[in-house]
Amino acid sequence: MSTRYTVEIKDRHDGGKAVNAHVVRDVDLPTIRIAQGEWSIWLGRAEMDAENRHGLHVPHDIKNAHLHWNWEAKAIHAQASIGLLMEFMGVELDGTMQGLMWLQKQEAGSAMLMPGKAQGQPTSYIHYLAVAHWNAREVVVNPRYSRVGSILLRAAILVSKQEGHKGAIALHSHPQADSWYSAKCGMTDHGPDPAYDDLHYFTMSPNQAKAFLV
């Protein structure tokens, strides 16, 4: 069953006004299906809107990448694997998911589910993290809601602590996000991972997590 925690995000389109959203733990498959539909429909409409007032700039590769980023398939994979050791989380505002994350609460036997350099490491692993297209800097010039990515990262650290990993987390970042994870979040960049599309592998140690949470 899903659990919800109130959190404030900011609406940049309304002068940075704070609005009450929720961090949702254990997001279920129907919710993920709806979120994916909403994200895809938004992107399709925005692309067609030549007079997009939010200054949409969708490079073709990014757009295709997002469209093919099938959250429903991810959820089915996660459920088919050790469901008790996996968790989908999201930030929801007024019934719409503003960001989603799939976290693996690493346990010994499930190590092989983690890719490349992450395999077997004693950490919670973020398989996927993304904010909704209207909040994504790589999709729109003026993203709408802020704090969503940071909140999901904090949630991953908190789960890691709950699971006994002292806040240690790891992920493979997209090139556009590398600088955020290293310079802003203080994670360690282990360089490109040849076993995982050459995405950079990042880790956050318990000490780094402690600094991030303050």
């Binding site: 799939w102 993304a130 790589e138 997209h174 996000a177 600088s179 955020w180």
Partner: peptide
Amino acid sequence: ACFTAGALS
């Protein structure tokens, strides 16, 4: 900032 993590495929 951009936040995307995880492979697209």
